[in-house]
Computed example of a mutant assay.
Amino acid sequence: MRFVFLALAIWGAIHPMYYFLQWFRENGFDLYAMTQAWHANAASSGLVWDLTIAAIALTLWIMAEVISRRAWINLIAIPATFCIGVSCGLPLYLFLRSRY
């Protein structure tokens, strides 16, 4: 399972980033405009909030386990979650966590 999590983390980094980079090529590097596009309608706003809440829950879980296990390298999953997405951060954390 460990390498399935790694494969999902890589896929979760590459696939969403393809769309983000495509959007930046078309609209320039404007984070404000991107966040406005995320809230273009109720469905996309719901998805944004769903992923935001999942990212916060994942972050709290990572921090709690890092404090108890002292596996500091696992903290790398937090910036992966917020800079790339839950689709990368969660499987990356599961990959890192599964080594012990």
Rank of each mutant, 00 (worst) to 15 (best):
M1E: 04
R2W: 04
F3A: 03
V4W: 12
A9G: 08
W11Y: 15
W11R: 10
G12R: 03
H15Y: 14
H15N: 15
Y18V: 11
Y19F: 14
F20Q: 08
L21E: 08
W23I: 03
F24M: 09
R25D: 12
E26T: 10
N27Y: 12
N27T: 10
F29C: 14
L31H: 08
A37H: 02
A40S: 06
A43T: 14
A43K: 13
S45I: 05
L47G: 15
W49V: 08
W49H: 13
D50V: 05
D50T: 09
A55M: 12
A55G: 15
I56L: 11
I56H: 07
A57V: 12
L58C: 09
T59A: 15
W61D: 14
M63F: 11
M63P: 05
I67K: 14
R69G: 07
R70Y: 06
A71H: 15
I73T: 13
N74I: 01
N74A: 10
P79Q: 12
T81L: 02
T81C: 03
I84Q: 00
I84S: 00
G85S: 04
S87Q: 03
G89E: 00
G89P: 00
P91G: 02
Y93V: 01
F95K: 02
L96C: 14
R97K: 15
R99F: 11
Y100V: 05
Y100A: 10
